[in-house]
């Protein structure tokens, strides 16, 4: 603005400078507007580019295996005519994520209920920060910790007793049986995943619970409900959509998690129904085989990546739609 006021200088015909400055400002405005718009649409372009590059990379495999890729159990890249199927990694991805959600959802909700309903105000922030810092730890650290610390512990003290206890019970002896290889198992990977997604579920559940109007809770307390009754009858029904959204968001994370899982799952392409034996997930298969692969094998790994992207895309899209519905209601 300093320049504009200098145009009051009497030797300077004011109108000319003023219009010059104004036109410069206007063109600067247009340029800035254009650049920001370009960057914003860049997000679109990025998504499209990721999709296209995955399809291009996966094309040879898509042409060779087609949709049968999804249901083929065998993974034999070293053959002269490689047989590659995605069933084992898909199974491993869904199974580990499922077990992780089974563990993390009750814990995450429990922590959120504690934080919003029970916790003294002075403790609320430190506990929340501690849980959220868990989300900041890089995933490779989780993998390393699972491999060296949690894995051996599970393999010595947790898995053998469970396996021994259910030895003669049908079905259970398959789920908890199988060959155990030291610290590598689907169960270990699921547990590490559960720890990783716990902060996401907690953070979203706390946010969603705090959208419940205080009047609703107070009136429930007023007619004599216990804290637990308020939570189950007022808070959870009110926040249901958002909770489901948050859980789906965490599921999206769990499905695509790579480094935490790669070490501790063993990258073994088989399906034996046991959660104590090694397995693989889509991301673990890509991370451990991509660098040494070539041709059709590499393309098949791209195909796996494409499947993972589509899977997480739909899960995350559903999650966001549900959270958006909640936001709209909170805004109204």
């Amino acid at each position: 603005m300093a320049r504009a006021s200098s145009s009051l200088d009497p030797g300077n015909p004011m109108g000319v400078t003023r219009s010059k400055i104004l036109s410069r400002m206007a063109s600067g405005d247009r340029l800035f507007s254009f650049v920001t718009r370009f960057c914003a649409y860049g997000v679109f372009i990025l998504l499209a580019a990721i999709m296209i590059s995955l399809i291009v990379g996966a094309w040879p495999a898509i042409k060779t295996f087609g949709l049968e890729f999804l249901v083929t159990r065998r993974w034999a890249p070293q053959l002269d005519e490689p047989v590659l199927g995605a069933l084992a990694p898909i199974y491993g991805t869904l199974l580990t994520s499922f077990i992780a959600m089974l563990i993390a959802v009750p814990f995450g909700l429990g922590i959120a209920i504690f934080l919003t309903e029970l916790c003294p105000l002075s403790l609320r922030r430190p506990i929340r920060v501690a849980v959220e810092l868990l989300a900041g730890i890089p995933s490779i650290i989780y993998g390393m910790w699972g491999f060296f610390v949690l894995g051996p512990f599970l393999a010595h003290y947790v898995e053998p007793p469970i396996a021994a206890a259910v030895q003669n019970i049908p079905v259970l002896n398959v789920i908890f049986g199988g060959e155990m290889i030291s610290n590598i198992s689907l169960f270990n990977a699921s547990l590490v995943l559960a720890i990783m997604i716990l902060p996401f579920i907690t953070a979203i559940a706390v946010d969603v619970f705090s959208t419940v109007p205080a009047v609703l809770k107070e009136s429930a307390y007023g007619i004599g409900c216990t804290t637990w009754e308020v939570v189950t009858n007022v808070v959870v029904p009110y926040a249901r959509v958002g909770l489901v959204g948050g859980v789906m968001l965490a599921l999206g994370r769990a499905l695509g998690e790579t480094m935490a899982v790669t070490f501790i799952i063993g990258n073994s392409f088989k399906i034996d129904g046991s959660i104590f034996s090694p397995g693989t997930t889509i991301s673990a298969a890509i991370a451990s085989e991509f660098a040494e692969s070539s041709d059709l094998h590499r393309s098949a790994l791209m195909y796996l990546g494409l499947l993972l992207f589509i899977l997480t895309f739909f899960v995350l899209a559903a999650a966001r739609l549900m959270l958006m519905r909640l936001e709209k209601r909170a805004g109204a």
Partner: peptide, 22 residues
């Protein structure tokens, strides 16, 4: 755009690696 951005925010990072590789 916001919706797509939120999806990219949680997209698996290994996919980003495959994309840049390509």
């Amino acid at each position: 755009i916001r919706f797509i951005n939120d999806i990219l925010l949680s997209a698996p990072s290994i996919i980003i690696g495959l994309f840049i590789y390509g």
